[in-house]
Design a protein around this nucleic acid. Structure first.
Length: 880
RNA sequence: GGGCGAUUAGCUCAGUCGGUCAGAGCGCGCCCCUUACAAGGGUGAGGUCAUUGGUUCGAGUCCAAUAUCGCCCACCA
């Protein structure tokens, strides 16, 4: 091993200038190639995350910032652990979203996609993509994302397009793809089919229309509908088979209002006799339930809608009207004929497009479908048998439920932007599926494209070169963790698992980590209309990327929505500053007295506070490891925060000043070593959360490696754990706090230094040897042994900490009454504690069954109370 | 109609393996510009851990019911 060349500490600026440092560090890391897995030795174990590809259309929102932070955290952590970490970035062509945006653009220019035509539209969209598509990916850089940019992919790249074709053709050849007329969810505005998942149902106020269905030879039937225009497509009227009211009607003929078409009255068990009048109109071409009834009873399917949801010629006199206009018109006409009975307010679920929000119509149309059950079975198995673990676990249930009830996936979309389905239509209704048309004349290419999620489903392996057996595929597939929001568990995660297993025969990743949604400080969803949208980049501008990252990770728990409060980002910005000031203090000390040799002082040269600090640090490292193993990054971050601020800064640094300012050269060196070690380890732990400030500080420390990014991750060592030191230092801390409380209670002026007498006892050396702790932390002038036999002055108050009793003389006469109250309070507290411990210990079941430490703890408490109480009571007795 | 989650301080939330777990941040009160940091330090007030049962030596933590809120799935016209 080469000796690491010695580098001196370099002074820090007074404050961290994140605006200057962040881009500088990022470019440096990137240029050095450290984001690439090749930065690790060739035999390093890989750790791979495929980024959830954001829509090219998108701008970075807070949800992106969350996934970006979590994934970067995992990647940086594993990289520091020596793995070949690959975070593969990219973006999604997002068929519908992108097409909508470009169409909007065209509309603003007074034209449309139909007008400019297919080729021009595609060219336009590509141009648009080149222009704006890089935005979001560049924004990820500002958050510190350590992606391997040389492996960046786009779902419409040539390689990925090939993968899509291969996958589709394979499924077809395996008999898992079929094409045919089915009732699908239709988006009239986009004039395309959409999948079940892309339809959202919201309860809305609507109307229920009651009307009469004329029946030959019987009084008319009363029927209710929410969509009167579909009456025109009715091909039956149904009642429940056991509904006595209508038994006479079954088999008779009804006449469709206005059109006078004769339709049968049938009996079907799916009719709920208790809803409305108990009579159901059947529109097989425009309702999913009716569709099934229609199939069962062999009814005709009459489609009354055009692709844009205007009425077609089957609607007779209403042809050409918009669906809602038709609804009004028909109802009016029925009122005129006396067929309309009444309208009733009715709250019901309306299906709306996830994109754009228009009302979706069930429409009969010819589409491509994937028979998904065989794929789903494999996907269920993989989670069931633990090859894939979903975190948090509760989502496994949801996953199973969805996959167990999954229906065939409509994968064709009548869009222009996307992967064209590799199919060809030949003479005589022939269909050929393949990347090229068959030989011969007259073959026409399919114009439908595939659902965007089809290509997303291949993402973990298509990005690595599949179907080619590339070196990357061999090395980095299966990937490691798939991290994303729970809202796309079905859309994306389940489909990746299904397709990964199907095409590669391996799970695409072994862990699924699902995060929650980011909401505003009051827990509301972000929305433009509420005006509560938080732009992560604005927060980065104000506070830097580190505080935002730290906040996003520590503000919540896995799988739960988190409320983002700007105040929290600000307070974490203060934490960044705190870290900076800690570093500033330590580096200044190095500059003053020379940087110490690397490493820790020998145990014999470690003072109590150092042993305490190192033991606490070691406990932190062990805890963090356990938490990381369980993906509890939030709790781990919070513990780091508490350690750095609450223990390292508040206590160790304060105490270290004694050695630094007044100690011998050897003491100074030993203390500096511990300070540097504490800082160095803290920076390593925090680096995955706050990469910028930690790297910047680390670069100013003496003797660092080249980059913190690749510095080894801290490992806990039993040799650093020191229970005794923790216990003793804790006693000192208790005393300091006790004295501070006392100072406040008696309003001792801050400048006034206290003289303390210590009752002789077992712990007297501990207290005497650390008098500097009290002098630095609570303004104590002197500590001396209380002369035996002498009664403490009436100007003194006493403080009791277990077996340590202190008498503190205050200059002015102590208010005897106040002191009595204080002592009384303290006595009561201890007596209660003693009583509880005593009764616990008297319970032999407790002593027998509770762990040894817990029993011992109770014994210690009892012991403490027993030693302290007589002291306190003695003091009470002395009061007048 | 099913399923899931939540309920802890004024607000937003942590709480791992049942035993220093009654915590943090913000807000609020009081004191302090003490030679790393006022972007700071110190110290307080404030909670029957939703309710009720149960398991256990021991429950914020596990179980069951209830209440309230939220989410997901589902073809009630």
């Amino acid at each position: 091993m080469n000796p690491i060349s010695r580098r001196n500490a370099r002074p820090l600026a007074k404050h961290f200038d994140f605006k200057e440092a962040e881009p500088r560090l990022y470019q440096w890391w990137d240029k050095k190639g450290w984001f690439r897995p090749e930065a690790a030795p060739p035999d390093a174990e890989p750790f791979v995350i495929s980024i959830p590809p954001p829509n090219v259309t998108g701008a970075l929102h807070i949800g992106h910032a969350l996934f970006c932070t979590l994934e970067d955290l995992m990647i940086r952590y594993e990289r520091m652990r020596g793995k070949a970490a690959l975070w593969l970035p990219g973006s999604d062509h997002a068929g519908i979203a992108t097409q909508l945006q470009v169409e909007q653009l065209l509309r603003e220019e007074g034209t449309s996609r139909e007008e400019i035509g297919y080729e021009a539209f595609l060219a336009r969209t590509w141009q648009w993509k080149e222009q704006y598509g890089g935005t979001i990916v560049n924004q990820l850089r500002r958050l510190g994302a350590s992606c391997d940019w040389e492996r960046e992919r786009f779902t419409l790249d040539a390689g990925l397009s090939l993968a899509v074709q291969r996958a589709f053709i394979t499924l077809y050849e395996q008999g898992l793809v079929y094409r045919g007329p089915r009732l699908v969810n239709w988006s009239p505005g986009l004039r395309t089919a959409v999948s079940d998942l892309e339809v959202e149902r919201e309860e809305e106020d609507g109307l229920l229309y009651y009307f009469r269905y004329p029946v030959a030879g019987e009084p008319p039937l009363t029927v209710a509908t929410t969509r009167p225009e579909t009456i025109l497509g009715d091909t039956a009227v149904a009642v429940h088979p056991e509904d006595a009211r209508y038994a006479a009607y079954v088999g008779k003929t009804a006449r469709v209002p206005r059109l006078n078409r004769a339709i049968p009255i049938i009996a079907d068990a799916s009719v709920d006799p208790d809803f409305g009048s108990g009579v159901l109109k059947i529109t097989p071409a425009h309702d999913f339930n009716d569709y099934e009834v229609g199939q069962r009873h062999n009814l005709p399917f009459i489609n009354v809608l055009n692709e844009d949801a205007t009425m077609n010629e089957a609607a007779g006199p209403y042809a050409g009207l918009d669906r809602f206009e038709c609804r009004r018109q028909l109802w009016q006409d029925m009122q005129a004929e006396g067929l309309a009975i009444r309208e009733e307010a009715h709250r019901h679920a309306i299906p709306r497009s996830q994109r754009g929000g228009e009302i979706i119509e069930p429409l009969l149309s010819t589409q491509w479908f994937v028979r998904i059950q065989p794929l789903a079975r494999k996907a269920i198995e993989a989670v069931r048998d633990g090859r894939i673990q979903i975190i948090p676990e509760q989502f496994e249930k949801v996953y199973f439920h969805w996959l167990e009830h999954i229906e065939d996936w409509c994968v064709s979309r009548q869009l222009w932007w996307g992967h064209r389905i590799p199919a060809w239509y030949g003479p005589g209704e022939q269909i050929h599926v393949g990347s090229e048309p068959p030989a011969g004349e007259g073959w026409v290419a399919e114009t439908d494209v595939l659902d965007t999620w089809f290509s997303s489903g291949l993402w973990p392996f298509s990005t690595l070169g599949w179907p080619d057996q590339t070196a990357d595929l061999a090395r980095f597939y299966p990937t490691s963790v798939l991290e994303t929001g729970y809202d796309i568990l079905f859309f994306w995660v389940a489909r990746m698992i299904m397709m990964g297993l199907w095409f590669t025969d391996e799970v695409p990743f072994h862990t699924v980590y699902l995060h929650g949604l980011v909401r505003d400080a009051q827990g509301r969803k972000f929305s433009k209309s509420l005006g509560n949208v938080i732009d992560p980049l604005v927060l980065v501008d104000r506070f830097g990327a580190d505080p935002l990252r730290f906040t996003l990770v520590t503000a919540g728990t896995p799988g739960k929505d988190l409320n983002l409060d700007e105040a929290r980002v600000e307070s974490n910005w203060r934490f960044v500053n705190k870290l900076w000031q800690i570093a500033n203090f330590i580096i200044s000390a190095c500059l003053r007295s020379g940087s110490p040799p690397m490493g820790l002082p020998a145990k014999a040269r470690q003072d109590l506070s150092s042993r305490w600090l190192l033991s606490r640090l070691n406990a932190l490292i062990a805890n963090v490891q356990r938490l990381f193993d369980h993906h509890q990054y939030g709790e781990a971050g919070r513990q780091m925060y508490d350690f750095v601020w609450g223990e390292f800064a508040d206590w160790y640094i304060e105490v270290s000043k004694q050695a630094l300012y007044l100690g011998t050269a050897a003491e100074r060196e030993a203390t500096l070593q511990v300070l540097l070690h504490g800082l160095d380890q803290s920076l390593r732990l925090l680096h995955p959360y706050m990469p910028f400030v930690t790297e910047e500080i680390w670069q100013h420390l003496p003797n660092p490696g080249e980059t913190l990014m690749l510095a080894p991750w801290p490992v806990a060592a039993d040799s650093l754990s020191d229970v005794e030191a923790e216990h003793q230092f804790q006693q000192l801390m208790d005393i300091v706090r006790g004295i501070r409380e006392l100072r406040r209670e008696y309003e001792v002026p801050p400048g006034q230094r206290l003289n303390i007498q210590l009752a002789p006892g077992k712990q007297e050396r501990l207290v005497l040897e650390h008098s500097h702790v009290f002098s630095r932390l609570c303004h104590v002038e002197s500590v001396e042994i209380h002369p035996a036999g002498e009664t403490p002055s009436t100007e003194a108050v006493s403080l009791v900490f277990g077996e340590i009793t202190l008498y503190i003389r205050l200059t002015e006469m102590v208010d005897q009454e106040a002191e009595r109250t204080r002592l009384q309070r303290e006595i009561e507290r201890l007596e209660k504690m003693a009583a509880r411990a005593k009764s616990q210990l008297a319970d032999e079941r407790f002593v027998a069954r509770a762990p040894q430490e817990v029993v011992q703890q109770q014994r210690d408490q009892l012991q403490n109370a027993r030693e302290a109480l007589p002291q306190l009571k003695e003091q009470m007795a002395k009061l007048r």
